[in-house]
Nucleic acid binder design. Structure first.
Lengths: 195, 195, 195, 195
DNA sequence: CATGAATGAGGGTTCATTCAT
DNA sequence: CATGAATGAACCCTCATTCAT
């Protein structure tokens, strides 16, 4: 429960954007959900797009921070990969609306992917790829496959799990979180094939 | 080059939906791109949503058909998995707009995922899971991980590659196609871990 | 059951105009109900308004004819008044759609009442007023009230009954017809007051 | 001259609905006539139909109120009947647009007479019939004719006069009003027949 | 005669944004 | 800070009418 109106509005926007999607969200909906007047939303945010960008920027900020931290840390590769998965699952547990919006409105939106949007993704992938490359260099990951291939597969698997949760509006229990991390890591590192 | 107007309109809709996304697509755009009058679009399709659904249904139809064929065939598991990847890549090569729309407007759209939409996905996943389950039974895939986990990871990886292509509007050469199939299969079956 | 297409179309138009009203009637509805193609309606009738006018003209023709016949005949006044009521009730029994359209689309329509339309009504009232005037001259009707007053009240009463039937889509049995005629005549001639 | 915009819009709507009829009224016409922007009409009223209903409900409200008052009062029957006529004529004098709309768009409209619309009329007739029935019981009105017959004839006569005024866009002078009341009452109570 | 594809102007409605209070 | 009335461009859809076959 935030006190200041600005945060209340952002919180309300998160909910509405998640429920209805960007295109079907009305500024009036946000104001109503926030319990503030129509005009106040415009008092704090220049417009619908700005409000959306504020939210998305917050997400990218968290994501980059985490990836940079992992990249810089000297934990071993496997733990880094686990931490990345953990980040998504834990953020989903704490801020499901934020992650939902990322999955449904940003991740695949052709609309969002214009100039600036695409650049965000490239950074996201680059930071991850750096970790993969390091893993290869250290002999932890196989080197006969390009690091960006590994990146795609790894992030694709995470996104698939997250998407399922988002679309099904599922809860993530602690136990499920660990099982999911374990499953993804196991398959990613050792493969789905029987020995 | 299609002859009949109905197909021309669908073709135009595919292009515009891809370029602008559903929400930003104007019926006027479709008519203009198709080179027909505004009203003719409504002569053939009851409205924007119907037109979109026609397109999406077509996609689901192809996808289900392929998965059912694979499920019923007696080719070995590895080949089935390859064929699934092949399907996405080949369809993207032949009908990039269709696949793009699937990725950007259907796959993760909170809007699409209501009622009927979700059911489509469940079917998609079930059919794939069936193949995974069979692979486990035949001893080809590891059994210490649930079949739906394998499904998520496998499909997630494919989707990630497809998404990259879609968002970057990339071409798929024959050579790239094979390399991608190979990469996904290798990692999925044997893991990204060294040795 | 008419054979030639032209009449079939008029018949269909009668039904649709009655069911939906002029404004909500689509040319497509008429074609469909008539079981003919879209274009054929235009082959025979220049447009929606023309088709409507054909119908309405037919009604006015019958009405005028009846009133002129009554005006010219030498039956006594009471019988003339009865015949006027009878005309409405019998026409309703035989052609309910025609009478319905008159009541709902012509009689009170501000749209219809432009120039030509208003003139039709004046003729209708004049012809009736002539009969009232004659009744006064022959000492059958009271003369301390203007003939057009009598006309309004008389026709108003008839229209009220017809409207009830039309709006309730009621049937007129022979027995009901006679009772209605009797009721209107009794009250109109002798009043509703107890002696 | 009303102050608040909402009333101004209703007033403008009354004028336009009267002039052009419901079907031919454009929301833009109403906004223009009210001197407000297009959007403001929608700010106050959900749509064209709602705006129309607001107007019509107002009419029914007044009408019912009057009939209930008359039904409950202990004035004698003749005066009640006079008051009913008076109500229509006076309302027409003060709010000609309202009465016009009732006559042209509600009273006989097949469109209006669906579901709720028909019920309104039944109430209108019932309330009037109650007065007739009371008149019969008190020996003021003849009892050999059903009360609803009397109702139809009485209301039919009033409506005929009102319609003439509406369609002719006539003014009602004080003198004309009294003459009309007197005429209707005389014929209704004592008949048009010469003794 | 008969068909139905094709046209496009027109109208109701939505909603982001502005602004006076 | 806060409100919500006011604006109007934009868009989906309807449907009378035309016309090629």
């Amino acid at each position: 429960m935030k006190n200041n109106k600005q945060e209340i509005i952002v919180e309300a926007a998160l909910e509405v954007f998640r429920d209805k999607g960007y295109a079907n969200t009305r500024m009036a909906d946000i104001a109503r959900r926030a319990g503030v007047s129509y005009g106040l939303v415009y008092h704090y945010f220049a417009g619908k797009e700005v409000l959306f960008d504020v939210i998305v920027e917050g997400w990218w900020g968290q994501l980059y921070q985490m990836l940079k931290d992992e990249g810089a840390s000297d934990t071993e590769c496997r733990e880094k990969l686990e931490n990345i998965i953990k980040f998504f699952l834990d953020t989903y547990a704490e801020e499901p609306n934020l992650v939902s919006i990322f999955v449904t409105e940003v991740s695949r939106s052709s609309v969002y992917h214009t100039a600036g949007g695409l650049a965000k993704f490239r950074t996201f992938f680059s930071l991850t790829e750096e970790i993969m490359r390091e893993g290869q260099k250290k002999g932890f990951l196989r080197s006969d496959i390009g690091p960006h291939y590994l990146t795609y597969i790894f992030l694709g698997a995470i996104e698939a799990f997250i998407s399922i949760m988002v679309l099904g509006k599922e809860e993530v229990t602690r136990e499920r979180r660990d099982r999911t991390i374990n499953g993804i890591i196991k398959v990613f590192l050792f493969g789905a094939g029987a020995d």
